[in-house]
Write a protein that binds this DNA or RNA. Structure first.
Length: 920
RNA sequence: GCCCGGAUGGCGGAAUUGGUAGACGCGCUGGUCUCAAAAACCAGUUCCUUCGGGAGUGCCGGUUCGAUCCCGGCUCCGGGUACCA
């Protein structure tokens, strides 16, 4: 073999490791550049070809940045806590730590074979106490801080307490759920428990009641994807929505800063838009509605106070606390029934099933403060307790959901904004003139909103208010395999551990299930109490806990005194390039922004936005292959012949199919059932069908990078993954086509070698033509790397090698820069050739070739000539020609006469150096 | 349902700012070399065609001298939807 990739790759991977080629340290003589991949959850299935897609892209970029003079931080680690390992533990009794460790080993072996430039000395995993100590530390900090709305910043809870002692809470404007005002005297007169209860309303980590998916039969809380169609995926038991006291993070305090920060980020507009929508800022009003024959006031939030004259009924969320009080004797049974039904529906079902209108009348009436009419109060599960106030004023004429509800239950619909046809559908648009609205008739929507808000304020009916869709993050999970909370309970009030007591290590338990009383698994731990004997929290933290500040830890991963030292943080600052999947668009990327902003407020870090630039790699889908078995036989027919028979489609392992042709011998060995199978072929081959599906074991379409590397080498895998298409686009994995990039690498190798496979380089001066090929490639490759268009840079390399081959180029002046140019993409072959060319220093630390535009100059341009926008012929014109000259040459050209058909051109459009269009 | 993407030859894709649609690669067809095969190399390859040309970037319509690109209306597919990671 000419190009012995396996020998080359093993040698250089060993060299890089032994020489610590990719270790980085703070080096103030160079500018820093931080490239981060979203670290993987090490699943039992191992790494498949989808994982490395983003890693290869970021690796190319890191290597490119190193070659252009940056000190590049490029680390990797593992997001090691999670549900799958725990589920496996429940089934097998195997400790999640052991399965996780095994999975990580496998991941590491697979990653190492791809030749990444990670600084592995910085590796950590979130499940290691040395790391989660800092996750616990951060939570204690959140517990010990509150958010001051006045300066939009987190501040110590001690300062708040001393303010309470001086002036009570009347001067405090805090994010939180404390509404009652108290004086300093009242505060001082409170018991410890009363004070602590109030403080929880301010703390950034606090406890509150939230609904969870509770499965009584399994005695546990279930994740959303463990629930399908109202029953548990495991076992198919009924799941209900149940209230439970949970830890939350007051992320809503940061809503405004999370929103404004987006403007400073170099992320795609679509991703920022998703975050904006997730935060969901809406300006409107809160308005109180009296209830007839009752002291209850219903507080609603509305973005359309201008439509208040059209509010013909009220709707409460079924779980609202006011429901019991508002329900009349006559309606009690029906309401009870409705609440039970809606408790079985998940939130998602409630929002998405718009066609299925349900609800129930409470029997009570509210008073519309503007029309003074009695309007019925209903409950319906399209209103969510967690959004706004959990109560809405329904304006059926101008809200489509209210409209459907009113039509279904035959409630009055009153038009208050003209412009639509409310007999047919609701008119939701925010334009038109107000009608049927005494005080604001004739105004347009914007003015009407202003005016009505003034009146609402004057009459003390409410006030203008900004509402966010963003909710506080529920931060506890009734699970084992996560970070323990550093909190203990005294008289049911949570207290934080001292920092010097961290980490609070996850205790051992015998079975990974909830206890018989329905407590989380940690309820099984022995002596799960503080040093003073107070019980610890039994929940653990969720998946996003460990990934919210890991970007900081890589800067200083071994530090036992701090999450990150000041020195390291000041040097590395923030992530310059973050690469990961779009599935994290609103989860992880919001939480980590919040977390970093919080640490910034406390002065621990210098940047309040963690990720400057973000690239989302698209998902790699599987490409499944099928064979067709004639029913009730063991005979398989090729694709084109399957219509002749009644056949069953059977998934076949894609690893024994090449270009859709089945390897029959391998197929017989693959499954003993097919050992004696018969085949009906077309053209002597068995052709398989295919489909693009999710990459999964059950569809036999999982392709591991290892098998590709064994067959073609890591450099081929790297190039091929990049060659598949734009990094951001989802695409199916199809090994067909890998030959192309492999062939390219062999041609590249041959360019430097003679027929005896010995390196042969000439020191002669390169020709202009050769230099042009080189510099054209430098230009294209550099531009493409900078805009993350790796697929097109690879085709540029292919064109370059083909052209140099055509020129029989063997000049050092060309081939040395070309080696450096290719090294970010295919580092192993580049190192090997660099060494063979007589260097004893690694190619990874060289300087990226510099473009010289002078070699690219063109004397003449081949202009396409169009008539009425349709290209008819091409004409070669000097690059210096003026527009008049071009026009003249085009019209004089023999081909033009035919298209002019004797007419004179109406207009001639000339785009210099690009094209000519003649309008006839 | 709602939010965000995507759709271009037989296949993956290219066209960077509204300016030659199909670069590059796979596959396929034909050829050279060979006893033969593999490899390598060369040529062709969007579709239709009366060989003049015509049509063509998911569908329908619009703006423009000119639209894969901009605008309006759809269809289908993917991601997210707050306890998968």
């Amino acid at each position: 073999m000419d190009y012995n990739f396996s020998e080359i790759e093993t040698r250089w991977q060993k060299y890089w490791q032994e020489n610590k080629t990719y270790h980085v340290n703070i080096d103030k003589s160079k500018p820093k550049f931080y490239v981060l991949d979203m670290f993987p959850y090490p699943s039992g299935a191992g790494l498949h070809v989808g994982h490395p897609l983003g890693y290869i892209a970021s690796d190319i970029y890191s290597r490119f940045k190193t070659l252009t003079g940056f000190n590049v931080l490029h680390p990797m680690g593992y997001d090691a806590f999670g549900l799958p390992a725990e589920q496996y533990a429940i089934q097998t009794g195997q400790h999640p730590a052991i399965t996780t460790e095994n999975n990580i080993k496998r991941y590491r072996e697979q990653l190492d074979k791809i030749g990444f430039s990670y600084d592995w000395s910085r590796e950590f995993r979130t499940s290691n106490p040395d790391y989660y100590k800092w996750t616990q530390w951060a939570i204690i900090q959140m517990f010990n801080h509150w958010f001051n709305n006045k300066n939009q910043k987190a501040e110590p809870i001690e300062a708040l307490i001393s303010e309470f002692e001086k002036n009570g809470n009347k001067n405090i404007d805090a994010a939180g759920n404390q509404e009652e005002i108290f004086t300093a005297e009242q505060w001082k007169g409170m018991t410890e428990k009363e004070q602590q209860t109030i403080l929880l309303n301010y703390r950034l980590a606090y406890r509150a009641n939230t609904t969870v998916n509770w499965c009584p039969e399994l005695g546990t809380v279930l994740a959303n994807d463990e629930v399908k169609d109202g029953v548990s995926v495991r076992g198919g038991y009924t799941v209900i929505q149940k209230n439970m006291l949970q830890w939350l993070l007051r992320i809503t305090a940061y809503a405004e800063r999370l929103l404004n920060g987006l403007d400073t980020l170099n992320w795609t507009d679509s991703l920022k838009e998703m975050q904006r929508n997730w935060i969901g800022k809406s300006e409107g009003a809160k308005v109180f509605f009296d209830v007839k024959d009752s002291d209850i006031k219903l507080e609603v939030f509305t973005t359309r106070p201008d439509t208040i004259y059209g509010a013909t009924f009220m709707v409460l969320a079924p779980e609202s606390e006011l429901v019991t009080e508002l329900t009349t004797k006559e309606q009690k049974e029906k309401i009870q029934e409705y609440i039970e039904i809606s408790a079985k529906r998940t939130e998602r079902e409630r929002i998405s099933e718009v066609k299925n209108v349900t609800g129930c009348f409470t029997g009570s009436y509210a008073i519309n403060p503007f029309t003074n009419q009695e309007i019925p109060v209903w409950i319906a599960d399209y209103v969510l307790a967690g959004y706004g106030t959990g109560v809405i004023m329904a304006v059926p004429a101008h809200d489509s959901r209210d409209y459907a509800f009113a039509k279904h239950f035959i409630l009055p619909i009153v038009e208050v904004v003209s412009g639509g046809d409310i007999l047919k559908e609701s008119y939701d648009a925010k334009s038109g003139k107000l009608v049927n609205s005494e005080l604001i008739n004739g105004l347009d929507v914007v003015d009407a909103q202003k005016k009505i808000l003034e009146i609402i304020n004057q009459r003390n009916l409410g006030e203008s208010k900004i509402n966010y869709r963003l909710r506080d993050a529920i931060f506890s999970r009734q699970r084992y395999w996560g970070e323990p909370f550093p909190f203990y309970y005294k008289d049911d009030i949570p207290y934080a551990l001292n920092i010097n007591e961290l980490p609070l290590a996850l205790p051992e338990i015998d079975i990974y299930k909830p206890t018989e009383d329905g407590d989380p698994p940690l309820g099984r731990a022995e002596n799960w109490v503080s040093s003073e004997g107070y019980p610890f929290e039994l929940s653990t933290m969720p998946g996003f806990a460990g990934s919210s500040a890991y970007n900081l830890r890589y800067m200083d991963p071994k530090n036992n005194e701090a999450l990150v030292s000041k020195e390291a943080n000041e040097y590395w600052q923030d992530v310059d390039l973050y690469v990961g999947g779009t599935e994290h668009a609103v989860g992880h990327l919001i939480y980590s922004r919040f977390w970093n902003k919080f640490l910034f407020d406390l002065g621990y870090i210098v940047k309040d936005e963690p990720f400057k630039k973000l690239i989302n790699q698209g998902m790699i889908q599987g490409r499944s292959n099928f064979v067709y078995r004639i029913k009730n036989t063991n005979k398989f027919v090729s694709l084109a012949l399957k219509e002749k028979y009644e056949v069953t489609d059977i998934h076949v392992d894609v690893n024994i199919v090449h270009n859709d042709i089945l390897d029959i011998e391998a197929f017989k060995k693959w499954n003993p059932d097919y050992k004696n199978a018969e085949f009906e072929l077309e053209d002597g081959k068995y052709k398989c069908g295919y489909a693009v599906e999710k990459m999964s074991k059950s569809m036999y379409n999982v392709v591991n990078p290892d098998s590709i590397i064994e067959q073609y080498g890591a450099d081929t895998l790297r190039l091929y993954e990049m060659f598949l298409g734009p990094i951001e686009q989802a695409k199916p994995w199809d090994t067909n086509g890998i030959e192309g990039v492999h062939k390219f690498l062999r041609k590249f190798w041959k360019l430097y070698h003679n027929n005896e496979n010995n390196i042969e380089i000439s020191d002669d001066k390169a020709s202009d033509e050769e230099l042009k090929v080189l510099h054209k490639t430098i230009k294209k490759v550099q531009e493409d790397i900078e805009r993350f268009s790796f697929n097109t840079s690879i085709s540029a390399f292919m064109i370059c090698v083909n052209e140099l081959n055509g020129l029989k180029c063997d000049k050092r002046e060309i081939l040395e820069p070309l080696t450096i140019l290719l090294s970010p993409f295919a580092p192993h072959i580049a190192e090997e050739i660099w060494m063979l060319m007589g260097h004893n220093q690694t190619v990874t630390k060289q300087t990226f070739p510099k473009l010289n535009e002078k070699y690219l100059k063109e004397d003449s341009i081949l202009y396409p000539v169009s008539f009425n926008g349709k290209k008819r012929f091409e004409i070669k014109i000097s690059a210096e020609a003026s527009n008049q000259e071009i026009e003249k040459l085009v019209l004089e050209n023999e081909n033009s006469a035919k298209w002019l058909e004797g007419k004179s051109p109406k207009k001639i459009i000339i785009v210099p150096k690009r094209m000519v269009n003649v309008v006839v």
